[in-house]
């Protein structure tokens, strides 16, 4: 028992508390520099994306056909277009900020859609009986066996491309992962005595699910959502690159990359700039996700 008390008072166990977020903030302060840089980068990206209409020197779709394909300032360009212009003379910096906004909105909403649908599916699957579980797991397996590109093309062909459709596609593409993780956690937790204790008090199945089971799986779900975020960013970029994502003149990081592919030899920075931003975002989020997972795993293993 004394060992258990030690663990309880130990830092590793601190995450079980309700004041989880304060604990995470505290742990974040002690995290390696790289993690803190990653965290600040992500925060900065969101802030910049939020303020993109104010920060952009030009409108994202404003064309200046006389100033096409200008190089960025650091490659002998002018400061009137710090990151140069594209093939239609649009300011790359303005487009980049707008694209960042679009990509982050789609990725964030997509992750939320995935967490909610996958989480609910996993929760129901884990708590309901054998038959319901079988049906849900069949759906999840079916999801895993359909090529995503096909699904995305079919969805866009049926309903046309819009941000909403893209969010749904990106979100649903990952729901099976959330469903599996949540289900396996639920299967463990539902046999814990505190869940039986709630049932013994007369708690309804809904109360048991949301008040007792769900709070215990928030940590692994957070970790999974973070590590999936970067794959969602890349997926959105890939779909936009293929032309089934964001439609011009609207743009996203992937769409910018797609438009730039014709100029790879002559104007390589058009592709390099959005690519660099994609790399930075996905790296930063992945690092954060790994750090969170390590924290959580350490707690599990103690």
């Amino acid at each position: 028992m004394s060992m258990q008390n030690d663990i309880v008072s130990g830092r590793a166990m601190a995450l079980t508390e309700n004041s989880q977020w304060r604990q995470i903030r505290e742990l974040f302060g002690r995290a390696p520099t790289l993690i803190r840089v990653a965290g600040v980068t992500i925060a900065a990206c969101y802030l910049i994306a939020l303020l993109s209409p104010l920060l952009s020197p030009y409108g994202p779709a404003d064309q200046d056909l006389l100033a096409r394909l200008q190089p960025p300032a650091f490659l002998d360009g002018t400061w009137s277009h710090p990151l140069g212009t594209d093939h239609l003379g649009r300011d790359v910096l303005s487009r980049l900020l707008h694209a960042l906004n679009t990509t982050l909105v789609i990725a964030t909403l997509g992750v939320i859609v995935g967490v909610v649908t996958g989480g609910l599916a996993g929760l129901i699957s884990g708590l309901a009986g054998r038959r319901v579980d079988g049906i849900f797991m069949l759906l999840v397996d079916a999801q895993a066996s359909v090529p995503l590109t096909l699904l995305a093309l079919a969805a866009v062909a049926l309903s046309g491309s819009s941000t909403l459709v893209l969010v749904l596609i990106v979100g649903i593409s990952d729901y099976d992962k959330y469903a599996r993780v949540v289900r396996s956690q639920v299967l463990v937790i539902k046999n814990r005595a505190f869940v039986e204790s709630a049932r013994a008090l007369g708690a309804s199945p809904v109360r048991v699910a949301f008040r007792h089971v769900l709070p215990s799986i928030v940590s692994p779900l957070t970790v999974l959502a973070t590590s999936n975020f970067s794959s969602v960013v890349i997926l959105e970029s890939a779909l936009s690159f293929l032309g089934v994502g964001i439609q011009p003149p609207d743009t996203s990081l992937g769409a910018m990359l797609g438009e730039a592919r014709n100029y790879l030899i002559t104007n390589w920075w058009l592709a390099a700039i959005p690519t660099a931003l994609i790399v930075v975002i996905t790296m930063a989020v992945s690092l954060l996700g790994d750090w969170l997972r390590d924290l959580f795993d350490r707690r599990l293993s103690t």
Binding site: E196, S197, A200, H212, P215
Partner: peptide, 14 residues
């Protein structure tokens, strides 16, 4: 009502 064996398992930490 029921009283459980393991008070570490039967109480919701959260």
């Amino acid at each position: 009502q029921i009283i459980f064996q393991d008070p570490y398992d039967s109480i919701n930490e959260r």
